[in-house]
């Protein structure tokens, strides 16, 4: 999963350094990810993992590091049944 997340960050994160060499806990905003880039990262995560971030997760800290993203994606992938019907 982390590799997929790193690839998404490399493509959409507009980071100043290669996402493949970032530490899991590195602050992505410090690394250059803008607010608009974080929206694109969020949308790419949704299509890659076939998930939908609920409103409560559309927050700055959910996307602040690879570890935080992994935690959020894991929660959504494991709780697929709780996805609202017809949401996609």
């Amino acid at each position: 999963m982390k590799d997929k997340i790193r690839n998404i960050l490399r493509e959409h994160g507009k980071l100043a350094q290669d996402a493949l060499s970032l530490l899991d806990e590195a602050d992505l905003y410090q690394a250059g990810m803008t607010s608009h880039a974080s929206v694109n990262v969020m949308l790419a995560l949704e299509s890659t993992f076939d998930i939908e971030f609920p409103d409560r997760m559309l927050k700055r800290n959910v996307f602040e590091s690879i570890r935080a993203i992994e935690g959020a994606v894991t929660e959504l992938v494991s709780g697929l049944s709780s996805k609202p019907a017809g949401a996609r």
Binding site: S35, S38, M42, L58, R60
Partner: peptide, 14 residues
């Protein structure tokens, strides 16, 4: 839109 929710949350958090 939905991306906008995130932009709004970012704007407030900062």
């Amino acid at each position: 839109g939905r991306g906008g929710r995130m932009l709004a949350a970012n704007q407030r958090a900062q």
